[in-house]
């Protein structure tokens, strides 16, 4: 495609639109098809869990770090899991250095909400001692190459990272008033329950399609991201200036549950559980 630039040429816009109308895409996908996912897990030795996920040419590396801290006063027996995203300037000439912009905050928030409301991370299991010490998990996503649809790739990346987790197990020492290591670890299967997937659709005029690539993302009027678990919708984010009819949303809800099931089966993320040491 044309170089990655903020402005997309008119002929490219016409080209994408006229082909989408014929249900054709330049990369030979149907309207409801994903690009290929490629997943590697636990590749960062310094992190407590990690994943390298590619969706077509989009690539995100995510790592997990933990800290032990005091719980929030209103949730004294629950740990915390936070998601951060950084759009590295290596990933695209569109990305600039500096503090996180709107796009990276949206990415982190949508992925975070998908995980939070899906009963994915068992925050109660992240408690070491009520009111005193809980785990704080940091899931940090780094975008390595930007070729559209960061949210879906980020969702899978964050999930795989949590699944591949291997975190030192702590026990509360009442006398010293501090957390000690038991010498053991706990793993992804101990904290991850539901597996939420987020599915993003682009909309141009009245055509809706799954997994927008970069040129499609640049020309589309708007996007909608829907997070689903096995049988529930857990979060929705509409972005961009597109508007969706009620029927369209109903249709997308239906499709998302269907595609979520398919993705869950195809990716089989539980294969990335950390090997028990």
């Amino acid at each position: 495609m044309m170089d990655v630039k903020r402005i997309i040429s008119k002929i490219e816009k016409d080209y994408i639109l006229s082909n989408l109308k014929k249900e054709e895409r330049i990369d030979n996908r149907g309207l409801w098809e994903y690009r290929e996912f490629q997943i590697n897990s636990d590749l960062i030795a310094s992190a407590e869990g990690s994943a390298d996920v590619s969706l077509g040419d989009t690539r995100i590396i995510t790592g997990l770090k933990y800290d032990v801290g005091a719980p929030f006063p209103d949730l004294p027996d629950e740990g915390v899991c936070t998601v951060m995203a950084e759009l590295l300037p290596i990933a695209s000439p569109l990305f600039e250095r500096g503090p996180p912009g709107e796009q990276s905050i949206e990415l982190a928030r949508v992925v975070d909400r998908g995980i939070r409301h899906a009963d994915c991370v068992q925050t109660k299991k992240l408690c070491i001692k009520e009111k005193e010490a809980v785990y704080i998990l940091f899931v940090d996503m780094y975008v390595i190459n930007y070729a559209g649809n960061l949210i879906d790739a980020g969702g899978v990346s964050a999930l795989t990272t949590l699944i591949s987790a291997h975190i030192p197990e702590g026990i509360w020492n009442e006398e010293k008033h501090e957390t000690e290591w038991t010498g053991k670890y706990f793993y992804g299967q101990d904290i991850v329950n539901e597996l939420p997937f987020v599915l993003t659709y682009g909309k141009i005029e009245d055509i809706i399609f799954l997994d927008p690539s970069l040129p499609e993302e640049l020309v589309c009027d708007g996007k909608i991201s829907i997070s689903v678990t096995e049988n529930k919708i857990t979060s929705i984010q509409k972005s961009g200036s597109a508007t969706f009819s009620i029927d369209e949303i109903k249709m997308l809800g239906n499709k998302s549950l269907e595609f979520g099931k398919k993705l869950r089966k195809e990716l089989n993320l539980l294969q990335y559980l950390a090997k028990t040491k």
Partner: peptide
């Protein structure tokens, strides 16, 4: 040249800035 370290690249989580 911009050299940066990922938050998870070291033993203690590095601050993002």
């Amino acid at each position: 040249v911009f050299y940066r370290m990922a938050t998870f690249s070291v033993f203690d989580r590095k601050r993002p800035a």
